[in-house]
Amino acid sequence: MAESTMTSKGQTTVPAEVRAALHAEPGTRLEWHVTPDGDVIVRAKNLSILDLAGSVKTDKCVDIEDMNPWSS
């Protein structure tokens, strides 16, 4: 298990093995989530939604309102 220490300014260094596993490079944004039971999930945001453009081929068009699962 990797660990790091937090400074008085709230900063820490992400351990090298974690950076390698996440393919994190300088400038990679980290997204932090605290679960109801107190666990912390950290995700590296190293892809933009724009990076996925064109990755799925389809002729189907969907209205934005139809994408909202809470509408209807």
Rank of each mutant, 00 (worst) to 15 (best):
S71R: 03
D66W: 00
T28Q: 05
I41E: 13
K60E: 09
T58S: 13
V62G: 05
D66T: 00
M67C: 11
T13G: 04
S4K: 10
C61Q: 05
T28I: 00
D66L: 09
G38H: 02
N46S: 06
D63S: 04
V40L: 15
Q11F: 14
P36A: 00
L22N: 15
L22I: 15
C61K: 10
M6K: 05
V40F: 03
A2I: 03
W70K: 15
M6G: 01
E65F: 02
D39E: 14
P15L: 09
S55H: 06
R43A: 01
V34P: 09
M67G: 03
P69H: 06
L22C: 14
V62H: 01
E3A: 15
A21P: 14
L50N: 15
L30C: 04
V40A: 11
N46P: 14
D51W: 05
D51N: 04
Q11N: 13
T58M: 08
N68M: 05
H33N: 13
S4R: 08
L52V: 10
S71D: 07
E65W: 10
L52F: 12
D39S: 03
E65S: 15
E65N: 13
W70I: 12
E3H: 14
D51T: 09
E31D: 04
T5W: 00
K60I: 00
E3F: 10
K57I: 07
E3N: 15
P15N: 12
T28H: 10
R19A: 14
V56Q: 09
V62M: 06
Q11E: 13
G10Q: 14
W32S: 06
N68W: 00
V14S: 02
E17T: 08
Q11L: 12
L22F: 12
E3W: 13
A16T: 11
T58H: 12
K45A: 00
G38R: 01
V14E: 01
